[in-house]
Write a protein that binds this DNA or RNA. Sequence first.
RNA 1: GCGUCCAUAGCUCAGCUGGAUAGAGCACCGGUUUGCGGUACCGGCGGUCAGAGGUUCGAAUCCUCUUGGGCGUACCA
Length: 534
Amino acid sequence: MKQRVGSLLRERFDRDVVLEKPKDRSFGHFSTPIAFSLAKELRKSPMVIAEELSSSFGEADMFSSVESVQGYINFRLSETFLDEYASWVLKNQDQFGKSDKKEKILLEFVSANPTGPLHIGHARGAVYGDTLLRLGRHLGYDITAEYYVNDAGNQIDLLGLSIQLEGRASILNEDVEWPESFYRGEYMTDLTIKAVEKFGKEILSDESRQKELALWAKESVMELIVKTLADTNIHFDTFVNESSLYDDWNRVMAKMGEGIYKKDDKMFIASSLKGDDADRVVVREDGRPTYLAGDIVYHNQKFERGYEHYINIWGADHHGYIPRVKAAVEFLGYDSSKLEVLLSQMVSLLKDGEPYKMSKRAGNVILMSDIVEEIGSDALRFIFASKKSDTALEFDVEEFKKQDSSNPIYYIQYAHARIKTIISKSELSIDEIQSTPLKGLSADADSLLFEALLLAEVIEDAFSSRQVQKLTDYLKSLAAKLHKFYYDCRIIGTEDEAKLLKVLEVVALSLKTGMNLLGIEAKERMVRDEEETV
RNA sequence: GCGUCCAUAGCUCAGCUGGAUAGAGCACCGGUUUGCGGUACCGGCGGUCAGAGGUUCGAAUCCUCUUGGGCGUACCA
């Protein structure tokens, strides 16, 4: 819609035209301040220019009016145009807001270590990534959702050791010496019990079997992670294990060419040549690779698989890694601008006003699965999707647990359910409603319809700017308009019933499409939760 | 120190390809259609957009500096 208006104006004026939403809908559907920017070169006042330009439009079927007001040019779309679009959308519901993008994108997100369950911080990145995935696919992009499993290195050794220690302490009742860092928490107790069931108690005291134990535990933790994600409607296409990448090690190092060098028996990446603060160790003296080594082989593998664009979603605490990985990509001979790293900022929690420090090793974490269980996947997804991902977010767990109408998800779902209810109450058939021409709509109905049709623009904007909160904001505002309209305007039994229901159909479709893109269920009927009746 | 993200209403946050009077929710106060779900709607209260310069016809939005915070600055992941 906006694209069509935009391209029409571009042809007309032979330049890009800024199109915006007028502050007040009574001005029209779109407006442009172009007269202000033309004022200087034409040496005329903006008012005069706007006046001339607007009167030059005359008869264009897209617009019912083009007016100049104080230098702005305001466009009002014709009812014919809006009706055609509305009718098309209702006939082709699953096409609403789709586009014909083709690019192949590899989207990597979550990638939490397989050493423990997902916590609330992971949940944010997971929701952000999955929402982008849904938006992108809707627009036609060919996106692969990938999870990188760090199943090599220290943390895996530590996982095996932690289970042994836990078992020796709690099952064999030995006095054990705890190292400085180790994994603990409820899941470790469960894992240890399961490990003993599977392997017998002997494995707890046999240091040589630590690796075996760790690899088994890793699989078990991954199952847990996958289940938690699935409970939030998040699914991955591919999982890449870090451990599987090292067969390629020598070839990749050779490919790095001058980007890699040996010094003091260690291997370094010359990342300082590519804008990093310093060169980084890739292989230690004892031959063990560092964390960065995995990322180098992994990114090489990604680029060899051949996508047009790569998106990584990382926790913001990893932002220092961006220059290193980009440097590696360049040394490998690829265009690092194809790699886009998006950061998901920290989530800090309060509990009853007190800071709640998250630390996986301490075992004192808020688990994603617990929150999903408490407030449901829909609310969790909505809350994270509605906050800019690169801004730190703080909230009180207690408040997060509330399940009343202060949660905007209920507000939006109620709007959708209200429409479905009223349509079921009407005696008109769906066909009668959808085939009614939209003529002579009130200003409010016209405005509501227009707003609902804007979904397509919102989806495109939200994805291309990677700002998924634009969609939640839009849905909140559309729901608010619906509720207000519903309150102000009687529908059933009026002579406008068919037209108005058609408008509401479009609103419902827009809300439903938007919610589905957020991975949220659009309810047909709201059922009040069983409250504890006192 | 350096890098990076940020600072908008009492609280949580939108708005930032520069544009018409800076928005929403929560909280607080007061109201609501002889009608379709009151899980709704309306009004009030509340802002030197951290501060200072600059660019511009026009700045919350762009640039510089200052202040105050989060995160990073590992041969940890």
